[in-house]
């Protein structure tokens, strides 16, 4: 059974319940708590972040291409594009493996058509890793990006 998808569907159902509660004046909008993977986003090591998104045993896949510059002069804005030919994509996560908090973004997808892109910060030269869940299985691919000026401050 596809537990993550179940969780997602349940989440959507409870979200609509919350919307009903707001409409009925039971909750103020500021009190709504959306789904957010606290363990994943606060993890400080890539392995911990991967564990938090259930990707510890991900399979390396040539059907995922991580498009990013070879060298990023400005680590605060690194364009990353994930392209995949895998069918039935359910979710995509993006990590900067050596960032202070490696998990950058996680997306649940429906009717996905093979391309997702975003702009991320990279603190230092590191692998940018994409984790794709498709057909109930977890796949991954990475690309190293060299950073000349880091984008995470501190």
């Amino acid at each position: 059974m596809n537990t993550q998808r179940r969780h997602f569907i349940q989440g959507a159902a409870s979200a609509s319940l919350v919307a009903t509660a707001i409409a009925a004046g039971l909750l103020k909008p500021g009190q709504v708590l959306a789904d957010w993977n606290t363990a994943g986003f606060t993890a400080t090591k890539a392995a911990d972040a991967l564990a938090a998104i259930g990707a510890t045993s991900a399979t390396e896949s040539k059907d995922i291409i991580v498009k990013a510059p070879d060298i990023a002069e400005n680590g605060s804005v690194v364009p990353v594009e994930v392209v995949t030919t895998l069918p039935n994509v359910e979710s995509i996560a993006i990590l900067g493996e050596k960032n202070a908090n490696p998990l950058i973004a996680q997306y649940q997808l429906t009717d996905f058509d093979g391309m997702l892109s975003t702009r991320m910060k990279l603190g230092q030269t590191a692998n940018v890793r994409a984790v794709v869940k498709a057909g109930g299985k977890i796949y991954t691919a990475a690309k190293e990006v060299k950073v000349t000026v880091g984008g995470c401050g501190g």
Binding site: L109, M115, L116, G151
Partner: peptide
Amino acid sequence: AGEWGGGVSKDPYLSFK
């Protein structure tokens, strides 16, 4: 349905098909 951390760049941009 996306979840973002602080590692997304300033003035976030997202595109997908």
